[in-house]
Design a binder for these strands. Structure first.
Lengths: 253, 253
DNA sequence: TACTCTTGTGTCAAAAATACACTATCGGCG
DNA sequence: CGCCGATAGTGTATTTTTGACACAAGAGTA
């Protein structure tokens, strides 16, 4: 948590550096042990969680803003990012960072401004990410999508909208590619689809269909180590994947 | 075109009333005589066309801004509006309203600011709209999508993105409902789909599929007057339509 | 009344989706 | 070391959906 002086300094810098009234919030999805995860952070001395977010530099394309913001939290560059909605209710940011609300008069206080926020969702390989807090965050960590804590502001709405978008785009965005590790087994990939769609799929039909797209390469050696029959390892054939995405995968789930 | 004094006055009011750096641009689609149309406007003493747009009042939800902006141009209330993308390149608005560029120094000149623009597309019944210009526009009129004039700024990109979105959403948004008149014939509806998708569809299969959705009601009396067999008139069964949209129409075209 | 154009409709074949059951192999355990 | 339990791999029969296609009916016009 910032002191009054630090807050003053921050607000001054923010006014000089950022576009006013515009923020970016990111819903970072990861997939681990059969569960969809989202990156969330807490703020010291405040209950509730936030989506990672930030602001747009005065001369910065918004895609880069989103990238920059995520790089600070995940240390990752080249993240798959997708803009999905702008949230523009004047009430939405009224309670932003409560603890700073009364520390400065409204005209000086960046955090009492109205903000439109541009929602981006990101898909990352869970294992690549080492969540790190920033100057405002107390903690930054993965949360299970089935077991979400209470979110501040309208961040629950933003998250829900992101998830809806993800479901809708499952057929024409490289969602599997970005969420899985380089090599994975067919049951793992199926589990991802089942988790996103929140329904069971038939094992054989899933396999037939996935292979039918021609976007997977089967590795020579299976994954050993489990207490059961060793599954084959697959990886995405990026070239075919890109081509298939242009067409859009036929049909839906 | 505004005089320097009027411009000064406008900029002053704008700064007082609107959120800075944020604009809204609308792609208004209509359908008439088998052709997709878009509402465009010209500015006096300037070549090129613009999408209708405007700004967000300081305490106004952005959905209402878009509605308000369109109401000024179309006189319509309750328009079907869909947010589809934010365009945030810092260069995109550099050449906004060229003729006002040098009339005021940049710090006073609203139009030399950077603007992120929120893209909305609207679907309207062509016949309901009486396009009317505003204080900046010289003319406001429907343009054929196949025969577009040159667009200013990044408005060609915005238009293209809107159209791509429209195509993608054809299966889970009430696009037919909003673009057609209350009553219409099956060939007319088919023509709409063909126009949006830019491809021919089979007459019989189209009919079978559309009727299969159970969202159409066939009227008792056919449309007379043409020089040929009188086609049946249909209208949307709104209740079923809403229900079907929730599911998403199965498959694609 | 014959002609032309457009609409309405049914059927068949191909493709896709669905439902379903058996075999193979790994590690663990007795 | 062989049996057990659990998971993975695979094919087929059935149903549903799509796609291609042709002919009859009705409205105005000549």
């Amino acid at each position: 948590m910032l002191t009054k002086e630090e807050l003053e300094e921050y607000c001054k810098t923010a006014r000089e550096s950022y576009l006013p009234h515009i923020s970016i919030d990111c819903v970072v999805f990861g997939f681990h042990e059969g569960l969809l995860k989202v990156l969330l952070l807490t703020v010291k001395n405040e209950g509730g969680w936030y989506l990672p977010g930030g602001f747009v530099l005065k001369d910065e394309p918004i895609e880069l803003s989103a990238n920059r913001i995520l790089k600070e939290r995940t240390r990752l560059d080249e993240i798959f990012l997708q803009q999905f909605h702008v949230f523009g209710d004047p009430q939405r940011s009224k309670q932003h960072f409560d603890m700073y609300k009364d520390m400065l008069p409204p005209k000086d206080n960046w955090f009492t401004n109205r903000f439109l926020t541009i929602g981006y969702y990101a898909l990352v390989d869970f294992c690549d990410v080492n969540p790190s807090p920033d100057q405002f965050a107390a903690t930054c960590s993965w949360c299970d999508l089935n077991d979400l804590p209470e979110l501040k502001l309208d961040h629950a709405l933003i998250l829900k909208t992101a998830l809806d978008t993800l479901r809708l785009q499952l057929n024409y965005q490289p969602i599997g590619y970005n969420l899985m590790q380089k090599e994975f087994t067919m049951p793992e990939l199926q589990k991802l689809y089942e988790t996103i769609l929140d329904k069971k799929l038939d094992r054989r039909n899933f396999q037939r269909r996935m292979l039918g797209f021609g976007i997977l390469k089967r590795s020579e050696k299976p994954r050993k180590g489990g207490a059961h029959k060793a599954p084959f390892l697959y990886s995405f054939d990026l070239e075919n994947y890109e081509a298939a995405l242009k067409e859009g995968f036929k049909g839906g789930w």
